[in-house]
Amino acid sequence: MQKTIETERLLLRPFRLSDSERVAKLAGDKAIADMTAQIPHPYEPSMAIAWIETHQPAYDEGRSVVYAITIKGDDNIIGTVSLPSLNGGLGVLGYWLGVEFWGNGYAYEAARALVDYCKEHLGLRLLEVSHLVGNERSKSVINKLAVTYVENKVVAVHGRDREVCVYRSEI
């Protein structure tokens, strides 16, 4: 069973199907799709339901771990932090926050907590993370996590080629 993770200001908990409307609302903001490689625009509640339904089976198989980010005292999600790929000690970090929650340090706080938890409990030894070129907020989170820049590469994002900065470090 996936455990809840607590930080100074946040509670990271497993998603529930009842979060799907909120996920669709937050992730459905075009600014989120523009800054992420995996979130389409528009983003519908049915997409959120399908996504949430993948979490527990993937966690049970040790392939990934996904958390809803909430502010302590308020069960409404503000975003997500995850290792959508976890294999042989290598975890690929992903995260997004609703636009209204940007600039408060929540992404770093959640990512740090998840990395520390997965290192201690899930065998995480190597962390990889990337951001689209121009996503300075994500770059700031990665720099605070002290993950080492490796290279830029071009990937297909929403049907077109985009350049991403790739980081990787032992933790």
Rank of each mutant, 00 (worst) to 15 (best):
P57D: 06
P57I: 09
A58K: 15
A58I: 15
Y59Q: 10
Y59N: 10
E61R: 14
E61S: 08
G62I: 09
R63V: 04
S64F: 10
S64D: 12
V65P: 02
V66T: 05
Y67R: 03
Y67H: 02
Y67K: 06
A68E: 08
I69L: 03
I71V: 12
D74E: 14
D74S: 14
N76D: 12
I77Y: 06
I78Q: 04
I78S: 09
I78R: 08
I78H: 07
I78E: 08
G79W: 08
S82P: 13
L83Y: 05
S85A: 15
S85N: 14
L86Y: 07
L86F: 05
L86E: 03
N87V: 14
G88F: 02
G88D: 05
L90V: 09
L90Q: 10
L90G: 01
G91A: 11
G91Y: 12
G91P: 15
V92T: 13
V92F: 07
L93F: 00
G94D: 06
G94H: 06
W96H: 09
W96E: 06
W96R: 10
W96V: 09
L97C: 10
L97R: 13
G98W: 12
G98S: 13
G98H: 11
V99N: 03
V99L: 03
E100G: 08
E100A: 15
F101Q: 03
W102Y: 03
W102H: 04
G103N: 14
G103A: 15
G105I: 15
Y106W: 05
A107S: 08
A107Y: 08
Y108T: 14
E109C: 12
E109P: 15
A110G: 08
A111N: 10
A111L: 11
A111V: 13
A111P: 12
R112Y: 13
R112Q: 11
A113E: 07
A113T: 07
L114Y: 02
V115E: 04
V115R: 05
V115H: 01
D116Y: 00
D116I: 04
Y117G: 04
C118Y: 01
K119I: 11
K119N: 09
E120I: 07
E120K: 06
H121M: 05
H121I: 01
H121N: 05
H121R: 12
H121A: 04
H121K: 07
L122F: 02
L122D: 04
G123A: 03
G123S: 01
G123M: 05
L124G: 00
L124M: 01
L124W: 00
R125V: 06
L126F: 03
L126M: 06
L126D: 01
L126A: 00
L127M: 06
E128T: 12
E128P: 02
